[in-house]
Amino acid sequence: MQVDLWGNPVVRRTSYWVFHDESMSMPNRRWLLIGLLFVRAEHLEQARGLLYTCRKQGNYYGEIHFSALPKRFEGRYGAKARVARRWLQGYEQGLSEIARFTALAVDRHSPAFEHNRFAKEYLAYNRFTAMALKAGIRWFLGPEDWDSVTITFVSDAKDRMSRPEQGWTDNFETYLPYRAELDAFLSREEGKPYPGVSLQLQLQDSAACDLLQLCDVLLGATQMALVAGSHQPTKRELGAVVVRWCRDLQETRWKQQFGLYRKFNLWGFPDKKDATYSPVPLQLQVGTNHPTLF
C-alpha cells in the first residue's frame, strides 16, 4: 500500500464495469467460451459514444448479435454487419485503450476436463465465468496496483446460456459476487498483486446496451477464429481480424503492429496439467496476404 508524505496509508480505489457474454461452439459443443469486456467507470460514456458514432456512420440502430449477422456486408441488409465491422475497426484503432477484452476457451473434450465436477451444465458456466473474471482482474488491473476495485458485472438478462432448464434454480447471481470476493481475498493472502473486490451483478437487456453487444461481437469473432464454424463471408472476415490480432500478440512486444498487449487476450483451459495456456490453436485459415478489413 502506498503512503503519503506523512506516512499515512493511501488507499487506491477504482470502479470498473465488466460486460459478460458466453457461447458454445457447435455442432459438437467442444468449446465453451466466456467473454468479458472491462471498462473503467469514467470511460463508459466515451466508449458508448464511439460505438454510437459507428452506428451513425452505418445508419443502423438495431440489436447486433454475431450469430445473426447477414451473409454479406453490401446492400441494405448488410448494415448490421457493416456496423459490427466498424466496431472491430474502432477496437483495433483505439477503443481497446479503454475497453479491454478477454476470452476464456474451455475445451470440454480435453482429457483433463472433469465433467463429473459439475452436476448441471450451468454450474460449469458459472464456475468458468468466475475463473475468467479472476484472470481478467489479474491481467488487466494487476499492473495498475489498485488496493480495491468495485465491479459492476453486467450480463444479458434474456440470452445468457447458463440459464438452467425449467425447474432448476441458477446460483449465478449469488455465486459470482461471492466467488469474486473470495478469489480476491485468497490471492491477497498469498501475497499476489490483486485488489480487494466488491462486485454487484446486473442483468440487462442487451438490446439496450451497446457494450454488451460489442462483447458479443468480439466473442463471436473469437469463436469464429477458434473453430471456423461458418462459411458466411461476414463472419469469416470478422474472425480473420481476431486471427490477425492473436498472431500479432505472439510477436515480441516491440514488433507488434496493433498494440493489443493487455488489451485483448485469448487463453485456453485445461492443458495436460489442468492449467491455463496460451496461445490457443486457431482453426480459421487466414493467409499472410489476407486483405485487411480496414
Rank of each mutant, 00 (worst) to 15 (best):
D4R: 07
D216W: 13
K56G: 00
K134F: 11
I137R: 03
D4I: 07
W168H: 13
R179Y: 00
E121P: 00
L219T: 15
V154C: 02
Q89A: 02
A157R: 07
L284S: 04
G90E: 14
G136R: 08
R86D: 09
M1S: 09
A68G: 05
E189V: 04
A208F: 12
I64M: 14
L203Q: 15
H43L: 02
R40H: 14
A240H: 08
V227S: 11
L266Q: 00
G167C: 06
E121R: 13
Y16T: 01
R160I: 01
Y77A: 06
D274A: 12
E144Q: 12
A47S: 10
F153P: 01
L33E: 09
F185M: 07
D205Y: 03
A130C: 15
E251P: 00
D156I: 08
G259K: 10
W139Q: 03
Q285A: 11
G239K: 03
F185E: 09
L95Y: 10
Q202E: 14
G287D: 12
R236F: 09
D183V: 01
N28T: 05
R188G: 05
R82H: 05
I64A: 05
F185K: 12
I98K: 03
G90V: 10
F264Q: 01
Q283K: 15
A105F: 07
P9H: 00
R30F: 10
G239L: 00
R236N: 08
E22F: 04
S23C: 05
P193Q: 10
A119N: 05
D107W: 06
W6Y: 07
T53D: 13
V241H: 11
A124G: 06
S15Y: 01
E165L: 11
T174A: 00
S25W: 02
R160Y: 15
A68H: 13
S206Q: 08
D170G: 12
P270K: 05
T53W: 04
H290G: 00
W254M: 03
W245D: 02
P143T: 11
Y61P: 03
L282G: 08
D147W: 01
K134S: 12
W87T: 02
A184F: 06
K80M: 13
R236T: 11
Q232A: 12
F101V: 02
G142C: 05
E181C: 10
T152Q: 00
H231L: 08
A105L: 09
P177M: 09
D216N: 14
K255I: 08
Y122P: 03
R82W: 09
R127E: 15
C246M: 14
Y122L: 01
E190Q: 15
W17Q: 13
L203A: 13
L214K: 05
Q202F: 13
W168I: 02
R188F: 06
W267Q: 04
Q285M: 07
K71R: 14
L182P: 01
L214N: 08
A228D: 15
L5D: 09
A207F: 06
A221E: 11
L123T: 05
M161H: 05
K71D: 15
R117Q: 14
V83S: 07
L211C: 15
A130K: 05
G196T: 08
Y277S: 07
G142H: 10
G220I: 09
R127Q: 13
L50Q: 14
L44N: 02
Q285V: 14
R247D: 12
L226E: 05
D147E: 09
S23E: 11
D147S: 01
R108Q: 14
E97S: 11
Y61T: 11
A135M: 09
P164V: 00
P9M: 00
P164K: 03
